[in-house]
């Protein structure tokens, strides 16, 4: 299998989701080519090799400096026509889903979106996906004709360990569209540098209505900081305006699968579960022993989060030497 991986990067670093997609491609195919688009992307090209790519197709051009759907989709489709890969993968990130969704229409190729696992059966891409907010799993398969596409749920696939001795062939290609032909302009980007994105986070500490108000997130943030994790929230707290929507976990928020999910003052409504039930270890801290969140949790503490969470922060500070 000849597999291409569309990669993305931020702050001059290869995205975690792209590392995972290259890792997944390596376990499926014998020839993995990373597609790297942008401006001055040589460092990213090297990283793609370090994380397992056998070859890189690079498009280094001012028109590709910022992400824009139109020139990116057009270029991936053109590369696919020219190089005829069997499959193209990408992380199921905002951009990954946009790019391969668009490419699917351009190439009349089916796409398995946001997959949890991936295999090849008789040359056909076969995946497990979640439906109905994770209440049902499906096994889905592509027909195997033409190029096959899939986007991969963050943290569902393992990246290889970086090996700086790896390298390979770099093929340079030109963009398909010139600046005049592109109808969109990127007018600015306000990055959240230093903040761990929820979908990539290995550890998440989340607060619910039990935190009582915006300042109630302070102890949650402190614990997250000591653990090197991200801050999550229930919809009740987002709707109340205590924390921005970017932090919402659940059916109408983000779907996350960290190694550790600590839910403090969250009742565990089914719509919240939809976003976090795939976490490896779930800890629930809640005053109410009957809260549904305890049905999902591996460890539970019946108590006041304003006592337990700061105590945990203190203990971890000592244990983790911070």
């Amino acid at each position: 299998m000849k597999i291409f991986v569309w990669t993305e990067h931020f702050d001059n670093k290869l995205a975690q989701a792209s590392k995972e997609a290259i890792g997944a491609a390596k376990s499926l195919g014998d020839q993995v080519t990373a597609l790297v688009f942008g401006q001055n992307v040589d460092a990213i090209v090297q990283e793609a090799f370090h994380f397992g790519a056998d070859a890189v197709i690079k498009a280094d051009d001012a028109t590709l400096a910022d992400f824009r759907a139109e020139p990116y989709i057009a270029l991936v489709a053109q590369i696919a026509r020219d190089h005829q890969p069997d499959a193209i993968l990408a992380g199921a990130t905002t951009r990954g889903r946009e790019v391969l969704g668009g490419v699917s229409a351009d190439l009349d190729a089916a796409l398995l979106d946001d997959v949890l696992s991936l295999s090849i059966e008789d040359g056909k891409l076969t995946a497990t996906r979640a439906m109905y907010a994770g209440k049902v799993l499906t096994k889905e398969q592509l027909s195997g004709e033409g190029v096959q596409l899939a986007t991969l749920r963050s943290r569902a696939f393992k990246a290889l360990d970086a090996d700086t001795s790896r390298s390979g062939e770099v093929i340079s290609v030109e963009p398909v569209l010139s600046e005049d032909e592109i109808a969109t302009k990127s007018e600015g980007f306000e990055g959240t540098v230093g903040e761990i994105s929820l979908t990539e986070a290995a550890i998440i500490v989340s607060g619910g209505r039990g935190v009582g108000g915006p300042e109630g997130f302070e102890p949650i943030r402190e614990l997250a900081k000591v653990l090197g994790g991200a801050v999550g929230a229930s919809r009740a707290t987002v709707d109340a305006g205590w924390i921005p929507y970017e932090h919402q976990v659940g059916q109408t928020g983000k779907v996350v699968s960290p190694d550790l999910y600590i839910a403090a003052g969250i009742s565990g409504a089914i719509q919240h579960q939809a976003g976090m039930r795939n976490s490896k270890v779930i800890v629930a801290i809640n005053k109410d022993a009957e809260a549904p969140i305890f049905k999902l949790a591996r460890y539970g503490v019946v108590g006041d989060l304003f006592e337990i969470v700061p105590a945990l922060t203190e203990v971890f500070k000592e244990k983790l030497g911070k």
Binding site: A15, G188, F189, S197
Partner: peptide, 14 residues
């Protein structure tokens, strides 16, 4: 304004 994993991008389009 688009909300993406690492921040917010402002985009104009025809």
């Amino acid at each position: 304004e688009r909300s993406v994993e690492q921040g917010k991008q402002t985009v104009s389009s025809k």
